[in-house]
Simulated scan of single mutants.
Amino acid sequence: MGTLVTLHLPPGSPLAREPWVITFGGLDDPEDWEPVVCGPYERDHALALARAMVADDDLMAVVEPMLPLDGVAAIRRAVEAARAPAGDDIGTGVPGEYPGVPPEPAEVRAGWRRIAGRLTA
């Protein structure tokens, strides 16, 4: 069994609506393969896919939001906000409230269409 690492978001967090990516890597250090970054996914899809992968394999999956920032000024604001002192909202493990059944490919593609719609609106 592997490890899933993600942010624990408060209810109603706007980050939950952002696209999410999964980075898969080996648990053993050093591994002789490059990490695999997948996405974007809707948050529930990313968590379910990551959970399914780490359930059967010695992998680490990091599930995190992808911020669609449209320029240097927006990126600078995000970096400044990240540097500001904040509470610790990072958690590890595979909490039970995350979806357990990975989505079918058609569901993932439907999620991509929803993400594209939000990004282009």
Rank of each mutant, 00 (worst) to 15 (best):
G2Y: 03
G2L: 11
L4D: 01
V5T: 12
V5Y: 04
L7H: 11
L7S: 08
H8T: 09
L9Y: 15
L9H: 13
L9C: 11
L9I: 08
L9Q: 12
L9G: 06
P10T: 06
G12C: 13
G12V: 14
G12N: 12
S13I: 04
P14D: 07
P14I: 04
P14L: 01
P14E: 10
L15G: 06
L15P: 06
L15K: 09
A16V: 13
A16D: 15
R17M: 07
E18I: 04
E18P: 01
P19D: 03
V21K: 09
I22E: 01
I22N: 01
T23G: 00
T23F: 00
T23L: 02
F24W: 03
F24I: 07
G25K: 00
G25R: 05
G25H: 00
G26Q: 01
G26E: 00
G26C: 00
L27A: 02
L27T: 03
L27F: 00
D29F: 11
D29T: 09
D29G: 05
E31Y: 00
E31N: 01
E31M: 02
D32A: 02
P35K: 00
P35C: 01
Y41N: 07
E42L: 14
R43N: 08
R43V: 10
H45Q: 12
H45D: 15
A46G: 09
A46M: 06
A46V: 05
L47D: 04
L49W: 01
A50C: 10
A52E: 06
A52H: 06
M53N: 07
V54I: 06
A55F: 13
A55H: 14
D56W: 10
D58V: 06
D58M: 09
L59A: 10
L59T: 07
A61Q: 02
V62N: 08
V62W: 08
V62Y: 08
V62A: 10
E64A: 15
L67V: 02
L67I: 04
L67S: 04
P68S: 14
P68N: 12
P68V: 13
L69M: 05
L69V: 08
D70S: 12
D70I: 05
G71Q: 11
G71K: 07
G71Y: 08
V72G: 06
A73K: 14
A73I: 07
A74L: 02
A74H: 03
I75P: 03
I75C: 09
I75K: 04
R77Q: 14
A78K: 04
A78I: 07
E80R: 11
E80V: 05
A81T: 15
G87M: 08
I90L: 15
I90D: 11
G91R: 14
V94S: 15
V94L: 11
V94M: 13
G96F: 05
G96Y: 06
P99L: 05
G100H: 07
G100M: 12
G100K: 12
G100T: 13
V101W: 08
P102S: 13
P103A: 05
E104W: 05
P105A: 04
P105H: 03
A106M: 12
E107M: 09
E107I: 08
V108Y: 06
R109G: 02
R109E: 06
A110L: 01
W112L: 14
R113K: 12
R113A: 12
I115Q: 08
I115E: 10
A116Q: 09
G117N: 09
R118W: 03
T120Y: 00
T120V: 01
A121F: 01
A121E: 08
A121Y: 03
